[in-house]
Nucleic acid binder design. Structure first.
Length: 428
RNA sequence: CUGGGUGUAGCGCAGUUGGUAGCGCGCGCGGUUCGGGACUGCGAGGUCGUGUGUUCAAGUCACAUCACCCAGACCA
């Protein structure tokens, strides 16, 4: 992508609409556009990050048997009335609308009911189970108060997987598998070290559900954490739970955290409501035992923008960055040489970000590079062309996470590398 | 929803006791520059969130309303 052709522009001054640092940078760098409070459009750079996050989640869901689907955003009132969740008293975050012919509709805030209703058409025997449909979908929730950029939105991306099992035993096995998959996901998202599986309230069919809480001052949740990582949500931090977990209250430290995922045992609640049953080995009708497992990719993006950003801008892990390389051409020859590098990368099938602007000065290009936050900066300049007429090398600087620094580079020091050396870096 | 704050050019802001709207950035054209958002000349761009009222006169005063931000409450 050539910067001269990218329609988004970076801005030098702050956005008055945003307070949190990450949201500020996401707006200023042109990753997102705020349509209204809690409603964001994803622009070319932002969409690439979002898709990278989704792809990691997708791979791990597929690895445990998930089958990707795409449910509908428009929901009919009838199936939600069956579970009692159509009523505003039960779920007060509905966006409701109506058909021109008169029927009422809702904009999906979640999909337990629709998935149960749909799967009725495909599940009839124990031989059809278990099944693990999942999707990435925009959810709509009429939050009383949206806040902190992508952290709490009224329209946001969610990965929701639903497990359909014959019984609790089969369900529990999968539940643990999801927990393992989630650990892998947060590791790959580079927040594994600060994200904790957290005890939270469970409901009728399980004592607990589990949230994945990323420790951050910006979080809205309060959790209690022990030195060994045992983490309990404030809502279930009581004597009874402590006793059951064999823990003492004074071992815990109170922390702010943001929920980036959850796994939940639904039991037969929604299956019963929607009539989702199967025939077991003895020809008896049984209710399907369900679970739901969510991760909010857009919220994760918000979290990443907060915790990895520097005082100058964003900074992405290399596997999530919109582009691994931010290429800069300086001066006539520099831009020409950079362009040759860009074409060579394209031929290899690698898309990079190329600041080919002729009218932008060095400082401006640096500021934009630091704001956008791609991990690898590559510069070709007239100055360099003088010292290296073959123009086989260029100046390379690592701007990514410190713990991802490639062996060939050291932090904050630029080096002259060849095309092949750079390819080695981004391919490993 | 409760409390507090803010709406003036694409962005960030100023606008005095009411008297026909300014600054910086950005944008367009030209010149000097060119490794940290450079300088300079000219220029384009606004029914002051919306509505009603008070007044000879409203960005400015009053009331209403909408939007946005923050804290809290809420968050299957």
């Amino acid at each position: 992508m050539k910067l001269s052709q990218l329609f988004t522009k970076t801005t030098k001054s702050n956005i008055s609409d945003e307070t949190s640092r990450g949201a500020q940078f996401l707006s200023r760098a042109g990753y997102v556009y705020k349509e209204m409070a809690g409603v964001y459009a994803y622009l070319p750079l932002g969409l690439r990050v979002l898709e990278n996050i989704k792809q990691i989640i997708r791979e791990e869901m597929n690895a445990i048997g998930g089958q990707e689907v795409n449910m509908t955003a428009l929901q009919s009132k009838e199936i939600w009335e069956k579970s009692g969740r159509w009523e505003s008293a039960k779920m007060d975050i509905w966006f409701k609308t109506e058909l021109s012919s008169g029927g009422e509709l809702g904009l999906a805030p979640t999909h337990e009911e629709p998935i149960a209703a749909m799967m009725k058409h495909f599940i009839s025997s124990y031989k059809d189970l278990p099944q693990y449909p999942y999707q990435f979908q925009i959810k709509f929730r009429n939050e009383l108060r949206a806040r902190s950029g992508l952290m709490r939105c009224r329209e946001f991306w969610m990965k929701d997987l639903y497990s359909l099992s014959t019984n609790k035993e089969q369900h529990d096995q999968f539940y643990d598998k999801v927990a393992d998959a989630y650990a892998k996901i947060y590791d790959r998202l580079k927040i594994g070290n600060i994200t904790f599986k957290t005890f939270a309230s469970g409901g009728v069919f399980a004592k607990y559900s589990h949230e994945y809480q990323t420790i951050s001052e910006l979080g809205e949740d309060t959790v209690y954490q022990r030195a060994d990582g045992l983490t309990i949500n404030k809502e279930v931090f009581n004597d009874e739970v402590l006793k059951e977990l064999g823990a003492k209250q004074d071992e815990f430290e109170q922390k702010r955290a943001i929920e980036v995922g959850n796994i939940f045992t639904l039991g037969t609640k929604y299956a019963d409501a929607e009539g989702l049953k199967y025939t077991d080995e003895t020809s008896q009708q049984q209710s399907v035992f369900m679970g739901s497992y969510g991760i909010g990719p857009s919220r994760v993006m918000g979290v990443l923008s907060e915790i990895f950003s520097t005082d100058k801008g964003l900074r992405w892990p290399i596997n999530l960055a919109p582009f691994k390389i931010h290429l800069i051409g300086l001066g006539e020859t520099g831009i020409k040489n950079a362009n040759a590098f860009y074409e060579k990368m394209l031929q290899k099938g690698i898309e990079i970000l190329f600041d080919d602007r002729e009218n932008a000065r060095f400082g401006e290009k640096m500021a934009d590079f630091e704001l956008i936050g791609c991990p690898l900066r590559v510069i070709f300049s007239d100055k360099l062309a003088e010292t290296d007429p073959s123009s086989k090398t260029c100046e390379v600087l690592w701007n990514g996470l410190p713990d991802e620094t490639p062996a060939l580079l050291t932090e904050n020091t630029s080096k002259h590398l060849t095309f092949e050396q750079i390819c080695d870096i981004i391919e490993t």
